Simulated scan of single mutants.
Amino acid sequence: MTGHASRPALADTVWPAVPPGALVLVPVGSTEQHGPHLPLDTDTVVACSVARRVADALPPGPYGRPLVAPPLTYGASGEHADFPGTMSIGHEALHAVVVELARSLSLWAGRVVFVNGHGGNTAALDTALGLLRAEDHDAAWTGCEVPGGDAHAGRTETSVLLHLDPGRVRLDAAVAGDTRPLAVLLPDLMARGVRAVSPTGVLGDPAGASAEEGRRAMASMVSTTVRRITAWTVDDRGRLADPARPPSVSRSQGPNAGHP
């Protein structure tokens, strides 16, 4: 993966070096099909990359530097279940994992932020973080979205992966899928799953994707997440609001504007 992160990963740290009260970022991804050209862990790669770069960009707090926890690599991906390779734990299990992780982290950490790379996780994160905040845990979540991005495995995600890990992108296998807006596709996606709408699993068109476009998209996701954490305005679902955007249009989805 290109780039670097100077902040230590929590998994590489020994316990005496973990600062009590630290801000902890927990990437949340998925293991699901991303068309014939992107790897199954695309959402996890994006969430981890955003979390690492955000930790690098944030200044040390009163309890030391931000830490990036190991990612949650399985999410709620039932809409992709008809594609081999997809592994989903569903909303109920994801909700339980997020709640118990945050309760555990609260024994020594300060704030906890779940950095989400898969839009299908939204419902579980909303209910989990709503419960956690009702229990007075200083926790929240935020999505990795690119305004105007296509829905799934299209130009946006392909560009981001070309920037982050180009050797894992199979451009020779990339094909266009259903390019209609997500709002139009959503009823069918909810009722019948992605395969019924797009046999290739692509919602969008990877054509024109580039590493430079991916670099700009990644920079946008990182700067948005830094703003949200710095402002720390949290709604009743535990979502961090973006102070640069009106709440009515602020969306917490996957690594594009409406990632299913």
Results as ranks from 00 to 15, higher is better:
residue 26 V to T: 01
residue 218 M to W: 09
residue 256 N to H: 13
residue 255 P to I: 01
residue 156 T to A: 07
residue 234 V to R: 09
residue 222 V to G: 10
residue 233 T to P: 00
residue 71 P to T: 03
residue 10 L to C: 03
residue 61 G to C: 08
residue 75 G to Y: 07
residue 101 L to V: 10
residue 138 D to R: 15
residue 3 G to L: 07
residue 139 A to C: 15
residue 89 I to K: 01
residue 235 D to N: 15
residue 72 L to D: 01
residue 123 A to W: 06
residue 183 A to G: 07
residue 171 L to Y: 02
residue 208 G to A: 09
residue 27 P to V: 01
residue 224 T to A: 09
residue 259 H to L: 07
residue 28 V to S: 05
residue 158 T to M: 05
residue 219 A to I: 02
residue 54 V to N: 10
residue 60 P to L: 03
residue 174 A to T: 12
residue 49 S to D: 15
residue 23 L to T: 08
residue 100 E to I: 04
residue 132 L to C: 12
residue 207 A to C: 08
residue 42 T to F: 00
residue 177 G to A: 11
residue 12 D to L: 08
residue 16 P to Y: 04
residue 56 D to W: 09
residue 6 S to N: 11
residue 71 P to H: 02
residue 22 A to R: 10
residue 57 A to D: 13
residue 152 H to M: 05
residue 141 W to S: 04
residue 126 D to M: 05
residue 74 Y to S: 04
residue 192 R to A: 15
residue 84 P to Y: 06
residue 48 C to Y: 00
residue 185 L to G: 12
residue 185 L to N: 11
residue 130 G to K: 01
residue 7 R to V: 12
residue 130 G to F: 04
residue 27 P to M: 02
residue 258 G to D: 14
residue 88 S to L: 05
residue 67 L to M: 05
residue 87 M to G: 08
residue 110 G to R: 13
residue 5 A to E: 09
residue 177 G to T: 09
residue 216 R to A: 12
residue 222 V to P: 08
residue 96 A to M: 00
residue 233 T to F: 00
residue 217 A to M: 08
residue 112 V to G: 06
residue 15 W to V: 12
residue 251 R to Y: 07
residue 26 V to I: 07
residue 3 G to D: 10
residue 174 A to F: 11
residue 87 M to K: 12
residue 97 V to I: 13
residue 233 T to S: 06
residue 105 L to E: 05
residue 35 G to D: 04
